[in-house]
Design a protein around this nucleic acid. Structure first.
Lengths: 178, 178
DNA sequence: CAGGCTTGCTAGCGAACGTTAGGTTGCCTA
DNA sequence: TAGGCAACCTAACGTTCGCTAGCAAGCCTG
């Protein structure tokens, strides 16, 4: 709190004119990020019809939210553990729901013959795992912009490392300005 | 410290008969885990000759170390940030070296025509990302044992989700008892 | 222009933190 | 059997933590 106050050019006690408690900050960050992830995901799902397209859009959306604010992302990904009830449970429910969207995209893909996975829950978890690590190394001034990161991730996750036949990886068409 | 002492059935001050400071615990955990990861990785590399084989072994080794002690893994993956100098720099150097091993396996694979990736550093990072998340959900009593997790991860990372031609995923032959 | 709301301040509370000082006990060894 | 050391204790240190109380200044609105 004293560090935060210092960064704001304010006394620590003055912060409490704006918030009720330290945890309120945590709650706001966690749930605002959750909302951002959901909105981005729903847009992604609505934009495409094929499972492959939806998944690639979903990955791009997730990466975009994640890279837009890496500090908030780190809080969203790790610090939610310190939420008190009922926020902790509520947050976990949202997380499950978000993961469920990915699971459903994958399930659809498997049913339509686009994908082939041993376990769709495991696949969804692995995809999100691969995405959720980027906040630890991503730097806005780095040479790889979020869109390119997303494309590389999509390519890797959809096609794997293995060299076989040539695989077309067409760029995503632009939906709206970022 | 007081929690730790309580878990040990001891007074907090008594801990200092065994360690110099709280950070010493952090140092020991971080560097012991680093050693474990390196030893497992080097065994994996020595066991196979193809890049594909080495990568699958390396993934299995990493997963095995990670799942053996999820609490220590969480410390290794996140809390190293709180190491003081020179341990912080030393740790980062080890991390780079470890990642370098993966990068080299991938590079070899690309040169031998086994793999096809846009950026081998990025590929290495993505693979480790996918692996390093499992400590957040893995439970020893869960229905998926570490070896199976590793196999599924290898399958996903090497082949991707996309259904194309049938891909043989042969199980790893057992090297030594676990 | 009076009232209240917003935003900030100073002072300080009570709890928790990592850690130290100094002492007691019991075992292992010379 | 004497000495030393390992392992533990009680007591308390100085610091940092999140936060509250109480107050002052500035702004907007009735």
């Amino acid at each position: 709190m004293r560090d935060l106050a210092n960064a704001l050019g304010i006394e620590a006690a003055s912060i409490y004119s704006h918030i009720k408690s330290k945890e309120e900050i945590l709650q706001r960050v966690c749930f605002r990020m959750a909302t951002e992830f959901f909105e981005a995901l729903e847009t992604a799902e609505a934009t495409e019809t094929t499972a492959t397209g939806q998944l690639r859009r979903a990955i791009a959306a997730h990466v975009q939210v994640l890279t837009k604010n890496t500090a908030a992302s780190a809080v969203f990904l790790h610090e939610w553990r310190h939420l008190s009830e009922p926020f902790h449970s509520e947050f976990l429910a949202l997380r499950d729901k978000y993961e469920g969207h990915f699971r459903k995209i994958i399930k659809n893909g498997v049913e339509k013959g686009e994908f082939e996975v041993p376990d769709e829950k495991f696949a969804a978890l692995t995809i999100l795992s691969a995405l959720n690590w980027i906040h630890t190394w991503y730097k806005p001034e780095g040479k790889m912009p979020p869109a390119e990161i997303a494309e590389n991730l999509s390519a890797m996750l959809l096609n794997g490392l293995r060299a076989t036949e040539p695989r077309a990886v067409t760029p995503l068409t632009r939906v709206h300005a970022t």
